[in-house]
Amino acid sequence: MHNGTDTDTQVETLAIAASGEEIRRACAWLAAALRQRDVPDPRVEHLELALHEVLANVLAHGGSAARAEPIGICIEVRQKATTGEARVEVRDAGLPFDPTGAPEHAPARTLAEAPLGGWGLPLIRRCSDWMSYRRDGGRNHLVFGARWPKL
């Protein structure tokens, strides 16, 4: 849809079941949709990885409620004259979890003491330019995205 003279905004949605195969489908869908809207490749790769980690986290920690209802994903791409912006929203019915305030474990000093988990959050943070969270209507609403300048 077009929104104003200098901004082109396009929205697309997908609902998936909570499973590994569906996560792969969602990642492929996201990457294709972003590339189709001229989002630069490095941003596409980062947002695809961030989405994967968010969905894997829902699957692993969201509990039975997360697996009982579809997970909603909405992407919005805004192309302005000088900048572009892609926003991804994930809605799930799992246990409340706010990744924006969750602590990361301290960096391991040696291989032997490295934990075998907790790597998703650093990836989500590294791959997103921003992230916000709210709990509404019994669902987690996590929004993250990326911005890029246009030459």
Binding site: C27, E48, L49, H52, E53, A56, L116, G117, W119, G120, L123
Partner: peptide, 8 residues
């Protein structure tokens, strides 16, 4: 693609 589970 290298996700957190692959790193693990």
């Amino acid at each position: 693609f290298l996700a957190s589970l692959g790193i693990r």
